[in-house]
Computed example of a mutant assay.
Amino acid sequence: MLDDLDRRILRNLQGAPAQSLPDLADHLGLTVSRLSRRLEKLRENGVVKGTRAVIDWVALGYAVEVSLRVTLDKTNPRAFDEFIPAAREIPEVLEIQTFLGQVDVRLSVIARDMPHYQAIYRERILQLPNIADIEALMHVAKIKTSMGLPL
């Protein structure tokens, strides 16, 4: 389990992930070597899975986000196995989630504008296998988006 120092390290990484190891070590009152050992242990235990750049797709010209709730044809026992790999091949699909219940899959899709979305929907989404029903939810605003954990 995590001790207080691990939690402090993780809180600081969440707050300022781009800071250098020497700066982080200084802020935490640790040596760089001790911080490095702790971070390596957190990586080995799967707590820290790496770092990545968060790219603002709106800044790149994508203005539309649609959440598609998909119900699959459950008469086909391979419906999920055929649908998921095909959905992964669509570059504009940013996220795929599966659920238990009436809705089987949720796709988060981005597009430059509505004509671009319509083309993706008609030419790519509707061609996915085993779709029984789709409900589209147009994103209007993000009220809260957080990757941070309460540590």
Rank of each mutant, 00 (worst) to 15 (best):
L5H: 06
D6Q: 14
I9E: 06
L10G: 13
R11S: 15
A18C: 07
Q19F: 08
L21M: 14
L21W: 11
D23W: 10
H27N: 12
L30A: 09
L35Y: 04
S36K: 11
S36L: 10
R37H: 09
R37C: 03
K41Y: 09
L42N: 10
L42R: 07
N45F: 04
G46V: 09
G46K: 12
K49N: 14
T51C: 05
T51V: 12
L60E: 15
Y62R: 09
V64G: 04
V66H: 05
S67R: 04
S67V: 05
L68N: 07
D73W: 07
N76E: 06
D81L: 13
I84L: 15
E89I: 07
I90V: 14
E95K: 14
R106P: 02
S108C: 11
V109P: 00
I110Y: 02
D113M: 02
Y117R: 00
Q118Y: 00
Q118T: 02
I120N: 01
Y121C: 01
R124M: 08
N130S: 12
N130L: 09
I131A: 02
I131N: 00
A132G: 11
I134Q: 02
I134Y: 00
A136S: 12
L137S: 08
M138V: 13
K142F: 02
I143P: 01
S146T: 14
L151D: 04
